[in-house]
Each structure stands twice: as structure tokens, then as C-alpha cells.
Design a protein around this nucleic acid. Structure first.
Lengths: 339, 339
DNA sequence: CTGTTAGCGCCTTCAT
DNA sequence: ATGAAGGCGCTAACAG
């Protein structure tokens, strides 16, 4: 059989193309009986409805939403926090009969997919700065999560305040503090920040968290020695372990580890326990994010829970709403055995 | 400024639309100098090239490949095996400048996206059987992974043989065997299979694995008591723990646990150790899949490693190739401390 | 309630 | 090396 199109189907059924189109898209435009007849005839023929690509060209919307990940897809999919977020996004999208196009933040050509989607949900500032420009000037709807783009709606938590509170919950006079930071500078390996230039201070959640830690330390009259602030490029075991080893070898040894992700905190605790350091007696550890694995670990981790699943859901809702105001989501400080 | 189209750009540059089109798509059709001039003028204007949606309508291909997940996106993203697979897929797709549309296997309307994509890579038999029919009759390229569709290319490992080998590696005369199976029957909770009808025996990897286990047991002159075969709906801690608890409470207590995923095996080991059962002295455990977490666990798990990342890569290559022959990927039996 | 028509933005002969 | 024209499959406005 030849290709089934609106036109060909109309011809074989002996009606006009508009009628077929209406049967599928605007039931109020024709009688119920005729509509039923047409629909079942189409099912018979194997015609499942108007071609979506043509529809999208004509109507200017496709029912597909792109989620731009900050990193490569490869990495994101393996990070539990990102996965949680995607779970929330996909569930809420499905609820609205929308579809999800995953796009890597390390790609260069947003244009390759821009024309196919109704808009963008950006999870974290894309690693590729070129993307940011393209997004900023896109005529489509753009929602940012965990960072901001001027004039665009966003979904965030108050990272500075959350970090501040988590630090305040553990800091005591006389503590020696080390900070295991996530993506503080532009380097592909774990290393002390020292005087390397901080990476775009404004929008990065890492820097907001750092601000919070530092505010808490100042309030507790503690100072951070240069060596005690580390940059970790990715929340993975090897990178985190390296940094943990390094700061635990410093003299004096830190008594508090402020970690910018739970995965980092877990790796650090593993390393400390391995070295026979008692937690929390000799070392207190605080994480960030809130992932399940920390509940199965012993000691359980004190951390800022930010409910990434709900965040994904909120992101879709904000994307779909007409509202353009920035949105701050709640978080929760949960203390475990590590502090 | 008004909308930028091939036509509008052509007018402002004072050339024909075809010339602009050729500048972007067919460099050989015009002089290098002119092409350069046009391209830079377009960049100046902010025109990033022909509209992809229109291009796709016209040319019939979009550069987007759909990956159909067997389950909801929500679940798949949290499963390390699926994540690994997606990593491989996305990396290889990126290499070819192709894009990834993630589609949930629990959706009903494949048609919603069918017209936007160049084809489908199906990871596991979709839970929604309606999808299978639609895929079977799709005019687009369809590649299946971990199951088969008549007349379509596929990527698999030899699940039966792998399961057989993994069982043979641990079974000894006198053993009492329990099998913790994944998705053996159509039930949403963990439960003994007993005489519930097995679920579409043909294509399911679970049944191929079961066949392998049973072949090994027969060869070792062992029989499987009805209560000792359990169905688990999803590789998650709660479902797996429930089943593990149940089979460990049987009399006689199993001395071997054959598990259809590493996640299940880990949960089972956790439960056994909690009960003070010594592994492998009192209980030997074998998993399936090969995930990193088993290497960090003590005891390390004996398992069939199937390199899901490479599988994802192979899937894309097979999808892109003209070859329609089924492909069997290698796997590796790796023995750990659990057997 | 139904049919006709004019594009949505583009690519590709075909002629120049 | 370039310009004009037809059509990919569909929808919305309009006329009947």
C-alpha cells in the first residue's frame, strides 16, 4: 500500500482533507456519527492520525520538551541527584502527554534540536558556555534550574542559606574546617583552590554554597586556611577520594568536612573510616543533596535534603505555567550520625 | 526583528533561497567566497541555518533517535544497568551528531513521536504490549536490545548460556537452590511463582536465564522446589529484600541463591549477613549484570558481567549499520567472594 | 456541517 | 552559479 496521508485517506474515504483533520483535532466541527465512521475507517486502513512533524511545522509546537543537562548525558545519568530530578521531570511530563528530549550540555549545536521542541528546561548551567548564549536568545520558553538566566523563569533552592545552616549545625569553637567543593574552578582534576580564579561567581550553586559555609565560619570566628578548600570536578568516587585523602593528611587535621554533595561526603567518610578516624568524634562530616544511599550507610550522613524528584516536578509545572517569576523550593536540614 | 527564514534571509542578502540553502547543505554548489560571505552574513543576522523541523518534513529524517525503555523513564533512570546502557547509547549517538529522545515503555502512543524520529532503539520488551505491535509495523528502522522482534535486527547476550555457566560455577551436590527471578510473571509484588503462568516465555530475558539455571541444576541432579522460585517485579531494595527474607526462612534453608540481577543479589546478601548467615560458607550467591557497586561490597559478588555501556554503543552501531542480522555480545563470568 | 485555498519553511529538479 | 516553481503533510480561515 502507498503512503497514508491526510490527503490520500480523504480521497479513499471520499471526504475532504479538512474533515479528516477535524475528525482528529476538532471533534466539535463535525457530527459524532461521521467522526466515528472516519476514525474507525482510519484505524482499519492503518492511519494513526496526522503526521506530527507536519503538524508541528504548521502549528509551531511539537509536544516535546528538551531537558538540557549541564554535563554530558553520560555523566548525568549516573548521578543519583540528577536521576532523581529526571524522574520528577519525566513523570510530570508524562502526566501532560509531553515528551522528553535529553540534550547534553556539552554539545555545541542547540540548533540541531531547537526547531523540534517547544522549549527548554535547563538543569544546571551548561558546561558549554556557547549554549547559554543560544538559550538566552531563544524565542522559545526557557526555564532554568539551579542557576539563573536574565529574564527567564527559574527554579532553585536557597543554596547559600542551606549551606550556612548545615555548617552552623556542626561547627564548634576550635574546629578546623576543610571544604570539599564541587566545581569551584575550571579544572578537570581535584586540587586545592588556592588562588585559582573562582569560576563565574554569580550563577554557580557551588559558589553560593561556599558563601554560606564561609558566612557560618565567620560567625563562629573560624578561618579557612588556603589548603583546606578543595575543588572537585565531578561527584565521583575517585575524584572525591583523592581530595579527601589530601585534606585528611593536612596538619592540623580537619575536624569538620563540609562537602558540596552527598557522594563526596560518602567517599570522604569511607576514606576517613579506612584510616581509623572516628566519626563524629574526631571528624564531623556534612553533605549536600540528600540521597538514599546515605541512609543505608553507617554512620548516616548529616545533609541538606533538597528533594530532587519534587524539584523536577516543580520545574515542569513552572515551565508549563505562564508565570515568569523565580521560584525557591524548600529544603530540609537532616542531621545524622556523622555530625 | 521579524522571523528569520530561508526566504527572508535570501531577500535581505539579495540572493535566491536556493543559494542560501546550498550554502548550508551543499557547499559544492557555489563558490567558496560566496559561501563564506553568506555564512558570515547569516551569523551576523542571527540566522543559524534552515529550520530543522521543515527540513525534516522535506527530507524525511530528523537526526533524532528514540530510545524506548521497557519501563517508565522514572524507574529506568534509577537502575544502574539501564544507566550504563544509556551512557553507551548517548556517547555513540553524540559521536554521530545524533540526538536522543527518551521514550517511556509504559506510554501508549508511539505515534506521538514516531514522525519526529529516524527510528527506534528498544531496550527490553516494552511493558506495554501495544507498543510492540506499533513497533513491529513501523516503517522506520527498529533495533531491539535484550529481546527480539521478528524481522528486526537485535543486540543480545546469550542469557541462557550465561545463566547456565554462572550456576554451574557454584552448584555442588547436595545444594539447596533458590532462584530470585526478575519479572517472571505478571505481578506487581514479590511472590513465589508457584503455578502462576509464566509471562511470554519467548522473548523475555528472565525466562532465558531461568532456562539456563534449570539446565545447570538438571545437570547437577538438583531439583527446584516450587517455593524456591520467586518473582520480583523490579530490581529495587524493598522488593528484593522481601523475597530474600522469604526464601531464607524456608526449610531447608537454601545454600545457593541464583539472582537475576546484581541489585537483587546485593539486597539478598545484605539480608543474609544481617541474619548472621555466613557467605559463602552457609550461602553462596550469584548475580547477573555486573555493576560497580558489587566491587565495593564485601563479600564481592560472583556475577555475569555484560558490559551494558558497550552494549549501548553496539546498539547504536547496529542501528546505524545496514546490517539486519541479530548480534550476540560477549559476557564474562566473574567470580567473587560470594561463591 | 463540509470543501477550497493558502501557506508553515524548506529542498530539489529544471531551466537559465 | 543562480532563480523559479512544485510539493513534503498538514491546519486555519473562509466560503458555501
Amino acid at each position: 500500500m502507498s503512503k497514508l496521508t491526510l490527503k490520500s485517506v480523504a480521497k479513499t474515504l471520499g471526504v475532504s482533507t479538512a474533515t479528516i483533520s477535524n475528525a482528529f483535532n476538532r471533534p466539535d466541527q463535525l457530527s459524532v456519527a461521521l467522526r466515528q465512521k472516519i476514525l474507525s475507517a482510519c484505524a482499519e486502513l492503518g492511519y494513526f492520525g496526522p503526521n506530527k512533524a507536519a503538524q508541528s511545522l504548521r502549528k509551531g509546537s511539537s509536544g516535546i520538551v528538551a531537558v538540557i543537562l549541564s554535563d554530558s548525558l553520560e555523566y548525568m545519568v549516573s548521578d543519583p541527584v540528577a536521576s532523581q530530578f529526571l524522574q520528577g521531570v519525566s513523570r510530570e511530563l508524562e502526566r501532560h502527554q509531553l515528551h522528553l528530549l535529553l540534550f547534553s550540555g556539552s554539545s555545541t549545536n542547540l540548533e540541531a534540536i531547537s526547531d523540534f521542541v517547544d522549549g527548554f528546561i535547563c538543569y544546571g548551567a551548561p558546561r558549554n558556555l556557547g549554549l547559554i548564549k543560544q538559550l538566552a536568545s531563544s524565542p522559545k520558553r526557557v526555564l532554568t534550574v539551579d542557576f539563573d538566566l536574565p529574564g527567564r523563569p527559574s527554579v532553585n533552592i536557597d543554596n547559600e542559606q542551606a549551606a550556612y545552616q548545615s555548617a552552623m549545625a556542626v561547627l564548634q569553637p576550635g574546629d578546623t574546617v576543610a571544604i570539599l567543593g564541587l566545581r569551584l574552578i575550571d579544572a578537570a582534576d581535584s586540587r586545592p583552590v588556592l588562588d585559582a580564579p573562582l569560576w563565574d561567581n554569580q550563577s554557580s550553586i557551588a559558589h553560593r554554597r561556599l558563601d554560606g559555609y564561609l558566612r557560618a565560619m565567620a560567625e563562629c570566628k573560624l578561618t579557612l586556611q588556603p589548603d583546606y578548600l578543595w575543588h572537585i570536578p565531578e561527584s565521583t568516587q575517585p575524584h572525591a577520594q583523592l581530595a579527601a585523602k589530601a585534606v585528611l593528611a593536612l596538619t592540623p587535621r580537619p575536624t569538620v568536612l563540609l562537602c558540596m554533595s552527598d557522594l563526596i561526603a560518602l567517599s570522604a567518610m569511607r576514606e576517613a573510616l579506612q584510616q581509623g578516624i572516628a566519626i563524629p568524634q574526631q571528624l564531623k562530616v556534612v553533605g549536600f543533596d540528600g540521597i538514599e544511599e546515605t541512609l543505608r550507610y553507617h554512620p548516616t550522613l548529616s545533609s541538606v535534603w533538597q528533594f530532587s524528584d519534587a524539584k523536577g516536578e516543580a520545574a515542569v509545572k513552572a515551565f508549563l505555567s505562564a508565570q515568569d517569576s523565580p521560584q525557591l523550593l524548600p529544603y530540609e536540614l537532616r542531621l545524622g550520625e556523622s555530625s
